[in-house]
Amino acid sequence: MNERPLRVVIAKAGLDGHDRGAKVIARALRDAGMEVIYTGLFQAPEQIVQTAVQEDADGIGLSILSGAHMTLFPLVVEQLKAQDAGDIVFFGGGTIPPEDARRLKELGVREIFTPGAPLQTIVDFVTRECGKRRTPAA
């Protein structure tokens, strides 16, 4: 049993304001008992990573729908490494074609969820992966 709820940063990067998906996921994670830190829209990779560090987050979920995913996801991975925070579970979502998703996973994004992915699958993923990160620390 975890003694405190999992903490997850849900972030929207890029300039598009389509936060419907991010919010539905934030809410599902909250309803699953997690503490969700919502950064709001238009976050730069640097801001997202600083947030995750200060909030001692177990995971970062990043949503991008503007088509800038191949630019922004790798920047977050880079920033996480620079902050010595590569252990934070980094996952993402958006309208991301399969070949891009494959490349992003090679770069270190743990999972990419595309539109239509069931909420429960996402909740299960976060519970499992972020939970794993907690166990060795304890």
Partner: peptide, 16 residues
């Protein structure tokens, strides 16, 4: 659920 939505940061983004 004991979950929470922590959203105050949004206003503080310029200082992140």
């Amino acid at each position: 659920s004991h979950g929470a939505l922590l959203g105050d940061r949004i206003r503080l983004a310029e200082h992140f």
